[in-house]
């Protein structure tokens, strides 16, 4: 089936099997391997991307469902060689260890801060409940989210 969608601002016209999952389109067709595959059961959040500005687990979305959509992946976050403020925050606050969950975590944090620019610690922890990290114990991730919020609010 022919579909066309925008990924990080670039148009893709491609012919896919209806059963192709969006995460496989991103990784195998578009070559954007920053979006990771973790649990494959829509629990771990490693595959989180934005579809039309809303976070989604791309292992649980068919590529054909994204026909006509604007998809943003971790590769679309940095602009002109400058890290996005949320990426910078994860760097500064060391919000990762192995890094496997990080692309999905950063996309989820962008979604959270879009809905709620000044989240409390509790709201942060609930806001990222769809993203599992097995290394950090989340503490530095929460610190990174707070730092991201400050950075983003300062830009306004």
């Amino acid at each position: 089936m022919k579909i066309s969608l925008s990924i990080n601002g670039t148009s893709y016209d491609t012919d896919v099997e209806p059963r192709l999952l969006l995460v496989h389109l991103l990784r195998d067709v578009a070559g954007l391997t920053g979006t990771h595959i973790g649990c494959e059961t829509s629990i771990c959040g490693a595959c989180t991307v934005m579809i039309n500005g809303k976070t989604a687990k791309s292992c649980c979305v068919l590529a054909v469902q994204a026909d006509g959509a604007e998809v943003t992946t971790i590769e679309g976050m940095a602009q002109d060689g400058q890290l996005h403020p949320v990426q910078e925050a994860f760097w500064e606050k060391h919000g990762l260890q192995c890094g496997y969950c990080t692309p999905g975590m950063i996309m989820a944090v962008c979604g959270l801060l879009k809905d709620n620019p000044n989240p409390t610690d509790d709201q942060i922890r609930h806001g990222i409940e769809g993203n599992l990290c097995r290394c950090t114990g989340y503490q530095n991730i929460v610190e990174a989210v707070k730092y991201s919020a400050e950075k983003l609010n300062a830009q306004k």
Binding site: S42, A108, G111, G130
Partner: peptide, 9 residues
């Protein structure tokens, strides 16, 4: 229900 990503879809 679930988490934010699940609720979005």
């Amino acid at each position: 229900i679930g988490d934010q990503q699940v609720r979005n879809r």
